[in-house]
Design a protein around this nucleic acid. Structure first.
Length: 426
RNA sequence: GUGGGUGUAGCUCAGCUGGUAGAGCGCCGCGUUGUGGUCGCGGAUGCCGCGGGUUCAAGUCCCGUCACUCACCCCA
């Protein structure tokens, strides 16, 4: 029902309490592995030169050809809201000469991305992602590290019902030849015009068509993994070896295709089984020519993007109460005007000491204030009335078991800190 | 961009074949003096998405429109 004149733009998710706490927890969990593996944080612009995406991501991709929010600025320059993160990271690495320093350059980022698609469950026009890139090395152990870091993020949240699909898309050496073989095969299939059109743009895409009548014909389709050059084959074997060393489980997915043109060799995708049609919660892969295509040195890199929104949906689908818990440790209930001043002084002291605290505002009755205290979730409530002010004490109530004791105002901070959960346990 | 579904209280929804609106949850208050969560009692809240049409009469039927939603496509 429309109750206000304005609405949020179509397809843009909003997070507010209590769910926003879960959103923050998901983002933190996904970023944690990168931060603890030596990756540095990079803060990037939300819009870039349109040409960067056209060149980097690929003109033929749906993302670039029909899903970008593009506009002209006052200098008539064409800018676009970023539809993905890797191109921007490459641009920044080149522009800031990070590629001239220690390699590989390891960076992680988080933030909103934009795609003008038809909204759906888990598919938004403003989507949040946590991503990471390791640039300047084609060591297969690096591929394994990147994949393991993504996997670890999901595991930290307690997710179980997801799967890692893995394959190799070959390189500039072997892919063109394979593509030729695949195209020849597809020519023998009975496909509708739209699909045939898709095949001319990127024949690989046809492989993961969801329709049965198409899949039925693809049983004998040639696969990239059977046409890898020796170098790519060797690399892919090594990646799988290191992935095993890292304790990561995966599923061979020879028909895995990604929507961005820059991927080469190692390619992967995480999907969650409870999310419906938009099941991808993260994906990534290696990109050999990307940096050169945006004007940098010819360095290879590998990275991933994890969907924060979808990962949150996945957690909810699995019934994980991520980020739940009390927002404050202590809640103060003053009774009367003089006690309100004492309460503000106490509140200030508690907060300055690092204790998460709140108090009852708005001159409600004691009952109402206690109700507010209860709803805050605070395990400890401090009650201050006229009598307490006179005796320089406060009633400290344990909301879990209902017990209550008088504590001198001077030792209240100690008392409360003693009761509050220790750092890191909340 | 292409299909399907749905729009009724803050939330989840009921309202049969047309007769001017209901439940549960939540919210507020009360159960006597300064104590929450349980329980009991009471209360507030709806241009029934919007516009038009049919009709004595429309939440209920028809048309349009907007929004939301699911799927295709694509992707996180």
């Amino acid at each position: 029902m429309r109750v206000t004149e304005f609405q949020a733009p179509k397809g843009v998710p909003e997070y507010f309490p209590p769910r926003s706490a879960a959103f923050l927890a998901v983002r933190e969990a996904l970023a944690y592995p990168a931060e603890h593996a030596g990756y540095g944080y990079i803060e990037l612009p939300v819009f870039e030169d349109t040409a960067l995406f056209v060149r980097g991501v690929g003109e033929s991709t749906d993302v670039v050809s029909k899903e970008m929010y593009t506009f002209l600025d006052r200098g008539e320059r064409s800018l676009s809201l970023r539809p993905e993160g890797t191109a921007g990271v490459m641009r920044s690495i080149v522009e800031n000469r990070l590629d001239k320093g220690v390699l590989p350059v390891k960076l992680w980022y988080a933030g909103p991305f934009f795609r003008a698609e038809r909204p759906q469950h888990g598919r938004y026009r403003q989507l949040q992602q946590v991503g990471l890139e390791a640039v300047g090395g084609d060591d297969p152990a690096l591929d394994a590290e990147v994949i393991a870091l993504a996997d670890e993020g999901f595991k930290r949240l307690g997710l179980r019902q997801y799967r890692l699909d893995l394959t190799s898309l070959g390189c500039a050496q072997c892919r063109p030849a394979y593509r030729h073989v695949l195209t020849a095969f597809l020519d023998t299939c009975d496909l509708d015009d739209a699909t045939r059109q898709r095949a001319t743009v990127n024949p690989l895409r046809v492989l993961d068509d969801k329709r049965d009548e198409v899949q039925r014909q693809l049983g004998d389709a040639p696969l990239m993994v059977d046409h890898l050059c020796s170098s790519c084959q060797e690399h892919y074997d090594a990646v799988r070896g290191f992935l095993s060393d890292a304790g990561v489980e995966w599923v061979e997915a020879p028909r895995l295709v990604r929507g961005l043109d820059y991927y080469t060799r190692t390619t992967f995708e995480f999907t969650h089984e409870l999310l419906g049609a938009q099941s991808g919660i993260g994906g990534g892969g290696r990109y050999d020519g990307l940096m050169a295509s945006v004007g940098g040195s010819d360095l290879s890199g590998i990275g991933f993007g994890l969907g924060t929104d979808r990962t949150l949906l996945a957690c909810e689908a699995e019934g994980l109460d991520v980020g739940a818990g009390a927002r404050v440790d202590v809640f103060i209930v003053p009774i009367g005007e003089a006690p309100r001043h004492e309460a503000v002084r106490l509140l200030t002291r508690l907060r300055q000491a690092g204790v998460r605290a709140d108090m009852a505002y708005g001159g409600r009755g004691v009952k109402g204030s206690m109700k507010a205290a209860d709803r805050s979730g605070a395990p400890t409530v401090v009650i201050i009335g006229e009598d307490e002010v006179a005796s320089r004490t406060a009633q400290v109530k344990n909301m879990i078991d209902g017990t209550q004791v008088a504590v001198a105002l001077d030792s209240l901070l100690d008392e409360v800190q003693h009761r509050a959960p220790q750092e890191g346990t909340s």
